[in-house]
């Protein structure tokens, strides 16, 4: 009986010692995340306070807090995508420089430009077709005959053009 109690106590102490060992390790891991690693993600996030300022260069307290949040999440092992997704969920798609392809972002940034290009192509083809049809419908005017014929059609054509130019 006494032996069992001693064993349990020893196990508890071992567990405590293990946890105490983990604590500095976790702190160390957080310290190991460099500013460059943080800024690699922060540059793709916009400051919530100053419009159009990336998080990595913004000096406000709000941005400092957000950068620290990125550092914490990196230390916790979260990937770049997971962190950016968290920011989009928490603060809206508008804080990301490259918003995810969903909802209004999908429509405004992807579908509408594609529709615009399609529309432009259709309009262009219609205009082109209209011009071709107009050209085909116009009666082909026979080349005007020169005032005096030489008997050579090529020469006649040339002379008639020269005469027309002189008249004009």
């Amino acid at each position: 009986m006494l032996q069992t109690v001693t064993k349990t106590k020893a196990l508890r102490w071992l567990l405590l010692a293990f946890l105490l060992l983990l604590l500095p390790a976790a702190t160390f891991a957080q310290q190991q995340i460099t500013d460059d690693q943080v800024n690699e993600i922060a540059k793709d996030v916009f400051c919530p306070v100053c419009e159009n300022t990336p998080l990595d260069v913004c000096p406000t307290v709000a941005c400092h807090d957000w950068r620290e949040l990125i550092r914490t999440k990196l230390a916790e092992g979260e990937s770049r995508e997971e962190i950016l997704d968290y920011f989009a969920r928490q603060y809206g798609d508008g804080v990301l420089s490259n918003p995810p392809r969903r909802g209004m972002s999908l429509i405004v940034l992807w579908i509408l430009p594609a529709l615009g290009v399609l529309l432009g192509l259709l309009l262009f083809s219609r205009v082109l077709r209209g011009l071709r049809a107009a050209a085909a419908e116009a009666p082909a005017s026979p080349p005007p005959r020169p005032k005096s014929s030489t008997g050579d059609p090529t020469l006649d054509d040339y002379i008639s053009r020269v005469e027309k130019e002189i008249e004009d």
């Binding site: 509408l112 529709l115 615009g116 399609l118 529309l119 259709l122 309009l123």
Partner: peptide
Amino acid sequence: VVMWAAILAL
């Protein structure tokens, strides 16, 4: 049809 749909969407 596509052209008008695109114009309306825009």
